[in-house]
Design a protein around this nucleic acid. Structure first.
Length: 479
DNA sequence: TGAAATGTTGGGGCG
DNA sequence: ACGCCCCAACATTTC
């Protein structure tokens, strides 16, 4: 192996050119670079499907185009088992090593650990970097060197830490694309069903789209973020989550960009604390790898869920009869995204009103969200269910009518996504069953025909949820 | 990053 | 003028 042998840069969830630690480090070596992307189709839990896979396709296409125009280099696309692919690639190209930015999903950690061991055993270099997090999960420990289990101390600790500088764009390098490369289009075909067309109108996947979203957010909507982020009828959140998931932008870039703004300090810190929730989720997933499937609080293993396929289906389709819930579920289906406040409302409804296991909601979000992220999704569902680390107390049950009236006071959000209720006056928009026959017919609403009756009665469902909670509390105490 | 039930207070109507 | 009741409005507790 000559010291001019190429280095493989394996891109995974870091599809960006700026502030990319592995890419940047490799580019400093002044050797040819092989830019690799592998669609890992080996059997694994939580493989990306649905909406987030559509995003992946778009993101890869954009990234590849940017690489081509900036460096005259292209991604080497492969599909299959990463270890085999990498070994074959190294044999063919005589590469001297491989660099990547770390992933933190349990499956990915196991896979990468094995690959690193095998590559090292071959006498080659396998080097990993932190490109996805502000700090590694093992760098943020409490005073007794244990992982944090409560957000606030985690957040306070994070705020005291010094963030690394943003890395510059890699200088020119010699790109090398092995011949037998698949195209991105072949590797990740468009879904057969045209649902993605609405998403194309909503989103601009890729590094530029991410940057534009950040700039738009900091300039126009950081002011009053703390209050207005709760309004699903406004565009007042950053909408960075899908970009962050594939690393089109890094949390370090976001951190420094936000910190460079001196006005609206309260709003800024509130925004950064949301970034810290993402960080906290990764922290939890790393230290408690069962997080996506089992309750963080073991007592919840005995929770008396009342599995009901019909309830789940109505929820998924946005046909629960509670307008704010249905609006959210339909926004999700059509755009691959849902406003965060509404995510809490619909999740609480599925878990507490319908008594369906949080894992069923988690699975649905995994398929339908463009920002589907194992750590955030698992931690957030557990948070709502009350079984997570620093979770909302179980008895905190959202009233879907009050939430609607409070956060969608003019009804714009419900009217947009549940148009069959659009003509109802505001007074009844969030609780159509309370309207008189006259009001309903004037609005051309026929409950049970044009819009469903409420699937459950709030007050009764609330009692049921509290009783279910009581059951596991009793069991826990007996143990 | 709830909501409902329960408790307290004080203004005003009224005998 | 006074006591009594009603009930917002707000505070506290409970789930």
């Amino acid at each position: 192996m000559s010291h001019n042998a190429p280095i493989v840069v394996w891109f995974r969830q870091n599809l960006r050119m700026h502030d990319n630690p592995s890419f940047h480090a490799a580019s400093l070596l002044k050797v040819p670079l092989i830019l690799l992307y592998i669609d890992d189709d080996s059997p694994q839990p939580w493989r990306h499907t649905g909406a987030s896979r559509w995003w992946l396709r778009m993101s890869l296409l954009d990234f590849n185009a940017q690489l081509l125009s900036k460096y005259d280099a292209q991604l080497h696309i492969a599909q299959g088992e990463p270890l085999k692919i990498i070994k074959a690639l190294i044999a063919k190209t005589h590469a001297q090593g491989i660099y990547w930015d770390r992933c933190y999903e349990p499956y990915a950690i196991a896979r990468d650990t094995q690959i690193k061991a095998e590559i090292t055993a071959m006498g080659l270099e396998a080097k990993s970097f932190n490109g996805a997090l502000l700090k590694e999960p093992w760098e943020t420990l409490n005073k007794s060197q244990q992982p944090f289990k409560v957000f606030t101390p985690f957040w306070r600790n994070l705020q005291k830490m010094i963030m690394r500088d943003i890395l510059p764009l890699p200088k020119a390098f010699k790109g090398q694309t092995p011949k037998n490369s698949l195209t991105i289009e072949e590797c990740i075909p468009l879904p057969s069903n045209p649902w993605y067309k609405t998403m194309e109108q909503t989103w601009t996947p890729g590094e530029k789209g991410a940057k534009n979203n950040l700039a738009r957010f900091l300039k126009n909507t950081l002011k009053d973020y703390k209050v207005l982020r709760n309004r699903p009828d406004f565009v007042h959140t950053s909408r960075l989550s899908p970009h962050l998931h594939l690393g089109e932008i890094s949390p370090v870039q976001i951190w420094h960009a936000a910190m460079s703004i001196d006005e609206h300090r309260n709003d800024r810190d509130c925004f950064l604390s949301e970034l810290a929730w993402r960080e906290f989720s990764y922290h939890l997933l790393y230290h408690f790898p069962f997080l996506p499937s089992a309750p963080f609080k073991p007592a919840f293993g005995a929770f008396p869920w009342k599995k009901n396929k019909k309830h789940l289906t109505h929820w998924q389709q946005g046909q629960t009869g509670y307008p704010i819930v249905d609006a959210g579920m339909r926004e999700l289906w059509h755009t691959g995204w849902m406003h965060n406040r509404i995510r809490m409302v619909v999740a609480s409804f599925l878990i507490k009103h319908l008594l369906q296991p949080w894992q069923d909601g988690e699975a649905w979000f995994w398929d339908t969200l463009v920002d589907a992220d194992l750590a955030s999704n698992a931690a957030s569902w557990q948070w709502v269910a009350g079984c997570g680390a620093d979770a909302a107390p179980y008895f905190r049950i959202f009233n879907p009518v009050l939430q609607g009236e409070k956060f969608d006071p003019n009804g714009d959000y419900v009217r947009k996504w549940v148009p069959e209720l659009a003509k109802l006056p505001n007074k009844y928009l969030h609780a159509p069953w309370e309207a008189s026959i006259e009001v309903l017919s004037a609005a051309e609403v026929r409950l049970g025909k044009t819009y469903p009756h409420p699937q459950v009665v709030h007050a009764k469902a609330r009692e049921g949820a509290l009783a279910a909670y009581q059951e596991i509390r009793t069991k826990t105490n007996e143990e």
